[in-house]
């Protein structure tokens, strides 16, 4: 069998193609519905929004219901950020907005006018890894990898939060501020679930980047 005759299709390309297919199917459905239903039901309200993603300006016109996560994945094809629970419980969708980590699934895209969004794609690239990405690779901070982009975005922000003096639930003296310890990192990472259970390796990766012993 001559494999070279098969067109090369990455998983990302397949996702893009199937998303386009879904868009055609749904617009066909909307046209059909328009003949039978009132206009308001056929055309859900849309709104324009402009924000920067990984340093690049983006102008979108979206169904108002579109979450920031869906805008990133389905409209900008940045599929690094993952949809796990879609309810803010698992952290797989974590991105950094204006320097703070948030659950992109629990935020409407149209509410991010003028914001600066950083996703896993903006932290580093395969040829030029962010130190946290390199540390996750070195310490085997993942198994299946699905939660990893959210874990890494969160981990980068956690170290910044500790350096900025933001206290946590485990900070002994909240008036003084938090020490850089593994205990502090573990508490702050509780919004990122890993069902493979790579937690101890994630903690080691973070400790290395923070310059402490795990």
């Amino acid at each position: 069998m001559n494999h070279s005759s098969l067109p090369h299709a990455s998983r990302r390309d397949v996702l893009k193609t199937s998303a386009a297919g879904a868009a055609i199917a749904s617009s066909g459905g909307a046209i059909g519905a328009a003949t039978a239903a009132p206009l308001a039901e056929a055309a859900p309200p849309r709104a324009k929004v402009s924000f920067k993603v990984n340093g690049k300006g983006q102008n979108l016109e979206l169904d108002t219901r579109t979450t920031l996560l869906d805008a990133l994945r389905e409209h900008l094809h940045l599929t690094g950020s993952k949809k796990g629970c879609d309810h803010g419980q698992c952290g797989a969708c974590t991105v950094i907005v204006n320097g703070r980590r948030i659950n992109s699934c629990l935020s409407l895209a149209v509410m991010h006018e003028g914001d600066e969004v950083t996703t896993i794609e903006g932290l580093g690239s395969p040829d030029n890894l962010h130190p946290m990405q390199a540390a996750f690779v070195k310490h085997d901070g993942y198994q299946c990898g699905y939660c990893t982009p959210g874990q890494i975005c969160s981990a980068v922000s956690v170290l910044e939060e500790i350096h900025a003096g933001v206290p946590s639930h485990v900070t002994q003296d909240i008036a003084a501020g938090p020490p850089i310890t593994v205990e502090e990192m573990r508490e702050r990472m509780s919004g990122n679930i890993c069902r493979c259970g790579a937690y101890s390796n994630i903690a080691e990766a973070m400790a290395e980047v923070a310059g402490i012993k795990a």
Binding site: V158, E161, P167, I174
Partner: peptide, 19 residues
Amino acid sequence: YGVLSRALLAGASGQLRNK
């Protein structure tokens, strides 16, 4: 008002408290 800081930090996750 340390009790207020403590209560906030006992709630939700870092991502949620940022929003």
